[in-house]
Amino acid sequence: MRAALLPLLAGATLLTGCASLATATCPAGQNPGRAVELLFGRKIGDQVGVSEVDFARFVDEELTPRFPDGLTVLDAAGQWRSNAGPILREPSKVVILALPGRAGGEDRLDAVRAAYRQRFSQEAVLVITQPACLGF
């Protein structure tokens, strides 16, 4: 029973930390917003099936129209446990977005994730959202 409570307590602690960040006041010259990371695996089956050209086309067709104010794309090496059970390692792309305000845009994020899963036969696209202070 105690072991089952540990993940629950850890999750509650993380949520409490996020709640306190969400109410933080931003320094002069910065505005409240969110930093969003999307993590895209590039393997299809046992092959790296999402080429650089494929991913660039996806950015042009799916990400840029939904987030025209800008984004950053990074190369990464990912690892995760699939629904089938084994740990998979694969080349990945990380897309970073800076979104104004503390809420909004979830529908656009969900649409991008769904489009990638469908287009490239992916099981998942991870999204990480954190409160941030944004300034340019």
Rank of each mutant, 00 (worst) to 15 (best):
M1W: 11
R2Q: 12
A10V: 10
A12E: 07
T13D: 05
T13E: 05
L15P: 03
T16S: 10
G17E: 03
C18I: 06
C18T: 09
A19F: 10
A19V: 05
A22H: 12
A22R: 14
T25W: 08
T25G: 09
A28P: 09
Q30Y: 02
N31D: 08
A35N: 01
E37G: 06
E37A: 09
L38M: 02
L38K: 00
L39G: 05
K43L: 07
G45I: 13
G45W: 11
D46Q: 13
D46I: 06
Q47R: 14
Q47W: 11
Q47L: 13
G49I: 09
V53M: 04
V53E: 14
D54R: 04
F58D: 09
E62C: 02
T64H: 01
R66V: 02
R66Y: 03
F67S: 11
F67K: 15
P68T: 01
D69V: 00
D69C: 01
G70L: 08
T72E: 05
V73D: 04
L74G: 04
Q79Y: 09
W80C: 06
S82E: 10
N83P: 09
A84H: 10
I87C: 08
P91K: 08
V94F: 08
L97V: 02
A98T: 07
A98Q: 10
L99N: 07
P100K: 13
P100L: 13
A103E: 14
G104W: 02
G104T: 00
G105V: 01
G105K: 01
E106G: 05
D107P: 01
D107G: 06
R108D: 03
D110H: 12
V112M: 15
A115E: 04
A115Y: 03
Y116C: 01
Q118A: 15
S121R: 14
Q122A: 02
A124N: 10
A124W: 07
L126D: 15
V127C: 08
V127N: 07
I128A: 02
Q130A: 13
P131H: 12
P131W: 08
A132H: 09
F136S: 11
F136Q: 09
F136D: 06
